[in-house]
Amino acid sequence: MVKIATLQLSGCGGCHIALLDALNNLPELISKDILEIKYSHMLMDKKTLSEEVDLLIVEGGVSTTDEEAMLKQCAMFARKIFALGACAGLRGVLTQGNFMLKEKLLKEYFDENKIPGDDLPEHFEFAHGIDVIVNVDYYHNSCPPDADELRDDIAAILRGKEPRFSIKSVCDECPRKRNKDPEKAQDTATMKRLIEVIPDEEKCFVDQNILCLGHATRAGCNAKCPRAGAPCYGCFGSIYVGDRALAPSDLTYQKKLAKEGEI
């Protein structure tokens, strides 16, 4: 029997939803004693993790002292740690809040002199990925995690294998047709906003002068957004490697890839 625990930190809860989407056979797994959930504050009533688990699945980054303590406490009992989603692995949307100093952020939030709380946890200057605090064994850098990809990943991890990370770009999975004619390469000066045009459904966004991050973004989502008429905005993180590191989280991830000889 495999024992798992899940922990939510600075996240939106969406990774837990993706986990439920991925584990659609959960009743089967639990009733046949294949899987046991030891701790998950969203699904059960245990207040802390206090026994050993095979896998700790962490959603969200770390932005308060309280979250750091929770993460450390849970990590003590975890044989392996799985950083699920862009916030835990890459800081995700939390990065946007990091562009502003904590002081300013809190002052924007609360009237001066009225910032609540001696009894409340303190915010860090910046939100971090969880690998700044604990050693992470597996990553799934995506927002939101794709249920099918996640199911495969978890199955691989539970079989003792490394989950696969696509090192292709979203363009590789995108069905939109690229304009191969170099003469007609896009002109950045005439870039258009999506509200200004109704793009052709079958042609590449970039060829239609609409900004799309597909070429720079890691694949694995099956190009869901371009298929739905919206350009890619990079939620699976960068495919750039080498000296193009964006965050400490990326470095660890790259080292892993290098070790596996993928880059």
Partner: peptide, 8 residues
């Protein structure tokens, strides 16, 4: 945690 949506 405060993530700062209204600000960013």
């Amino acid at each position: 945690p405060i993530r700062g949506f209204e600000v960013f």
